[in-house]
Amino acid sequence: MFRETALGRRKRRVEVVARWVLLGMSLALIVPLLLIVVYLVVKALPALSLGFLLDPPVRGMRAGGIWPALLGTIYLVVISLAVAAPIGILAAVYLNEYARDNWFNRLINLAVINLAGVPSIVHALFGLGAFVLAAHIGKSILAASLTLAVMTLPVIIASTREALASVPRPFREACWNVGATRWQTIRAVVLPNSISGILTGVILQVSRAAGETAPIMFTGALFFKAVEKGDIFAYGLFEQCMALSMHLYVIATQVPDVPEAIPYATAVVLLGAVLLVNATAIVARIFMRSRKKW
């Protein structure tokens, strides 16, 4: 009754090929990541310990730990997000919920998209010119954080808008129909149902801000600074600081005779921090999606 035709056979063959090719591509994605992680961890193993995290580097960065750099990166990321997240989220709410489709808002959109594509070294030069020199902040944590904020802002705006746009329009119309203002609608329906997407977008920018070297190199990152072991208030807002990405660059290329394990261990810490943050984003998203309401 169901005799297979030539076309049916061909469709089935294509189906099998497609499945395996696509699976192969997915594996090809994972393999290098695993290789990198395993390679790094194996190389780093001799140096890794809790002391490595909490100790300052000693003997011209050829021994000891990475505490000042780790702390500096945390400072930079936290401050840059404290600036970029509120501005980015509120701007995205305006653009998505209030802005009419006119030339001015289209211009803003265009600017946001293009800004997101600007290479980080250009942001670095902008930060140097705008914050360090023109605004007279000087090379400092503040200037570097602001530079990172400018770099992450357009992406936060874009991801937030995407999250807001995923809330179906009929929900908004239902609210308007009963006499709710736009803001009441946003508060009651739009934000609660897009907050997981918004936070995911913001958290993903943490890893980007933590990993970039160029923007902070000219604006506030330091070669070396003496910091007490485990001191969490080592830096002031207007001081320069060390940072993980910069530190890695320095010990890998600028300082001779660094034991091999130390740069690898630094890289593992940076990678681990990024993975930790991303994992937090994923868990947060799963948690909030489980409360999603439609």
Binding site: E173, A188, K292
Partner: peptide, 26 residues
Amino acid sequence: LRRKIGMVAPLPVGLPLTIYDNVAFA
């Protein structure tokens, strides 16, 4: 004005709120 006019759309829209909050929203 909109409060004076009740509007029912073609497709049912339960707001993503509890049943109580759906009605208490306005």
